[in-house]
Design a protein around this nucleic acid. Sequence first.
DNA 1: GCGACAG
DNA 2: ATCTTGTCGC
Length: 238
Amino acid sequence: MDRIIETPESNYGQLTIAEAKLIQENLGEQINLSPMEGEIKTIAGADISLDINSEKVYAGMVVLSYPDLEPIAYSLVETINMFPYVPGYLAFREIPALLKVYEQIPVKPDCIMFDGNGILHARRLGIATHFGVLTDTVTLGCAKKKLAGNYADPGEMKGEYSLVTDKGDTIGYALRSKLNVKPVFISPGHKMSLKDSMDITLQCLGKHRLPEPTRRAHEFVNRFRIGELKEGFHELEQ
DNA sequence: GCGACAG
DNA sequence: ATCTTGTCGC
């Protein structure tokens, strides 16, 4: 039973899926979905980019002002792939790198939006929830595809949404983030309510399908991968 | 057994 | 996730 106490810092070692599942069930007891406290002044977007023919992982977080949504700083870290992509276990692949990215930020953001799910997960432990519980931070998830649950297609107008339910629980929303695009899936990660996750996401919508935090994070980690940006923490000129 | 399956 | 060309629309 020693192996299941492997930490993210150790890249979760060579965990088996059965062990990873036990870790998720364990973390599940600490999830906090009570209404968020305090005002949001900054929100970060988190994402990773992979090199198609190497083991390199380019992880990053972009901090934006809120509700202005202007990028004010970013943190980038390059690591090595240690865990494969397995549906339902994305956190074990991306969190080790994202923890380094987060530690590198001097003034922490009030909230973090992940490219993936929060509680919209079979065991309610998507990457946003996993990271939130691990670091005791306020998080939410925004995924481009459905991972679990059932939902009715939301109205076609920007801002319309429907509930995603699973086994009697409401675990998130299908949101039409822009006219004529497929919906994105929103769910709270940790230290915020279901409603908070929707309120915040609606405030983060711009001209694109993805909310500004994750859209910017995706943009920055890709620029990092192609050598346009350098590793480390950087503040942007305003 | 069958279908689903974040990035 | 990543690769890639054209195409449609603001």
